[in-house]
Design a protein around this nucleic acid. Structure first.
Lengths: 202, 202
DNA sequence: CGGCTTGTTGGACGGCCGCGCAACAGCGGT
DNA sequence: ACCGCTGTTGCGCGGCCGTCCAACAAGCCG
């Protein structure tokens, strides 16, 4: 019987839940599997989290927020808005195929049935959109690109990225990662009135 | 005990499965629920379909193909490729919010764990892409629009539509149907070198 | 050293799952 | 009228689920 402080235990449970979610999918993640990963009794999980819906939402937020923070950090390193856009696509492309996107797919589908998860995925999607909208607005303000509605443009670019990533994850080789990357940068260039190639990888 | 011919019974089971899928989601669709809808024993379902994966894939194809055929028919009624594109968006927009798109979301997420469903959703996605690519190629051939790679353009337009519809279905009012419709037509106009407003609803 | 707080156990509860199978019953053909 | 085919039942199998709770034990404090 390994006794941990509440903070440590809560953390360990989230990490274990994430591991199970990535391996089996959100819909198939069970209390017993999480407990087994920790070598712990299943009752303990409910001692720390009231319901499975809550735990799944917390674990999803952990993973999704880490990806978002990574992109935020990368974008912040860009000198001007165009360089920031380039870095945005660089970091996004890297996470396209790994288990992160499958998690998002699960989350969107499960959102209809899991209230806590729906709130979390929605909030994170809006943060992604706000990040991109800010960069576009800055570029527009600096006269580096042309965009009448940065918020709308951000939704369009993100939705295209999501739609392409979705095909990559769900259907394997119907598209290649290179095509998805290339096409989304090209669409963003057209969207923002940039010359072709402006957003090509650094 | 109502006795049906095999063809009728198979059909009735597919219809009932679809009803359950739309109400509860693909992941939560069970043999017993389907049997209950028909007022029939659960053993009967397995008499006609070897596994739940197979039955779910058949039922999904039924629903998805009906939507596709509807769009194919609508598009065929268009005089020239530009009118056909307009009709494409008209029919697509109508099905954006109903349960059809939630079904697609479920299918994409479940694809990772259900081989039969993955093959079906992939095939249907490719048919949607082919339909759109043909119209674009025709428009390009007739000099009505500018597109170097109709296949790629079709994937981009479809992915944007999917990405926007996904937000509508998963997160409710983060976007409006009108925005999704408007934005996707606008993006297609930019994609195909058309004047703004060319693809506005008929 | 003993008591008490509290992290942890382990199983019970009611319910659900996909699947398989022997027995039953409707119906067409003889 | 009966027989055989086959559509259909009803239930059992082994297993899983989320949740709950009384009992146990580890470590801190007096």
């Amino acid at each position: 019987m390994v006794r941990m402080s509440p903070a440590e235990r809560r953390e360990a449970i989230v990490v274990a839940t994430l591991e199970v979610m990535q391996r089996q999918g959100i819909a198939a993640t069970t209390v017993r599997d999480v407990a087994a990963v920790l070598g712990v009794s299943s009752g303990l999980i409910h001692h720390y989290y009231d319901s499975m819906d809550e735990l799944v939402a917390v674990a999803f937020e952990r993973a999704a927020r880490a990806d978002l923070e990574e992109t935020v950090t990368a974008v912040a390193a860009g000198g001007d808005p165009l360089a920031q856009l380039r870095l945005f696509f660089d970091t996004y492309a890297r996470s396209d195929t790994d288990s992160g996107m499958q998690l998002w797919l699960d989350a969107w589908a499960e959102a209809a049935r899991r209230p806590a998860l729906r709130r979390t995925s929605r909030r994170l999607n809006e943060e992604w959109q706000a990040l991109l909208a800010d960069v576009i607005a800055a570029g527009s303000g600096a006269g580096l690109l042309a965009c009448a509605d940065p918020g709308a443009a951000a939704w369009r670019v993100l939705s295209l990225l999501d739609g392409l990533a979705l095909q990559l994850v769900a259907h394997g080789d119907v598209l290649t990662v290179a095509q998805a990357d290339d096409w989304s940068r090209g669409a963003a260039e057209r969207e923002l009135g940039l010359a072709q190639g402006t957003l090509s990888p650094a």
